[in-house]
């Protein structure tokens, strides 16, 4: 290709690219419409009960920063990060931070829950995902899986695996509280 042919090729390619960009404009941000378990998107809503029967609905917590932590009693990294989650929860709860610790009850032994809560002195709300619907909505295939959600209900960060360090928790909580 000589120089003239190359320049024509560049111009045509750039025009085609610009036309495709214009054709694929999005009518508006998806943040208001399509929940997805992906950073930058609204968190899928759910309602789950605690072992005591109290119901928590994620959308009712709009205005608070939320950490949705998917865990199970038999999962070693989940066990390892619980003290850090509890500590950071107590540090930031007065600023509007809440933890929803969603036990994967459908693949856990419910009888192990009470000893676990007692062993780690947990005050964070423990929710029971008895059907696995919440885990599926969040596509949680590994435990622990943690979703930081800001005051507007948008997922700001997903941490898959663990244990999360206290510093990581503090950084992500402060971001979600902004």
């Amino acid at each position: 290709m000589d120089k003239t042919q190359r320049i024509i090729f560049y111009i045509l390619t750039l025009i085609a690219g610009a036309a495709w960009v214009s054709l694929s404009v999005q009518p508006g941000p998806v943040a208001a419409a399509d929940p997805a378990p992906q950073a930058g998107f609204p968190a899928p809503d759910f309602s789950l009960k605690t072992p005591e029967g109290e119901t928590y609905t994620l959308s009712d917590l709009r205005g608070s920063a939320v950490l949705v932590n998917m865990w199970a009693t038999w999962c070693p990294p989940c066990q390892a990060e619980m003290p850090a989650i509890e500590k950071v929860y107590n540090e930031y709860r007065s600023e509007g931070f809440i933890v929803l610790a969603v036990d994967q009850t459908y693949q856990d032994n419910p009888l192990d829950l009470a000893p676990f809560i007692e062993e780690y002195n947990l005050t964070i709300p423990i929710l029971l995902d008895e059907t696995g619907d919440t885990a599926r909505a969040y596509q949680a295939r590994s435990l622990p899986s943690s979703y930081f959600i800001n005051r507007y209900g948008i997922i700001t960060e997903i941490v898959i695996g663990g244990p999360m360090s206290e510093s990581l928790l503090r950084i992500r909580v402060e971001e979600a509280l902004k």
Binding site: W20, Q26, G28, P29, V30, A31, G40, F41, I154
Partner: peptide, 8 residues
């Protein structure tokens, strides 16, 4: 074009 994006 096929990715939903949260900010434009």
């Amino acid at each position: 074009a096929f990715y939903p994006v949260p900010s434009l």
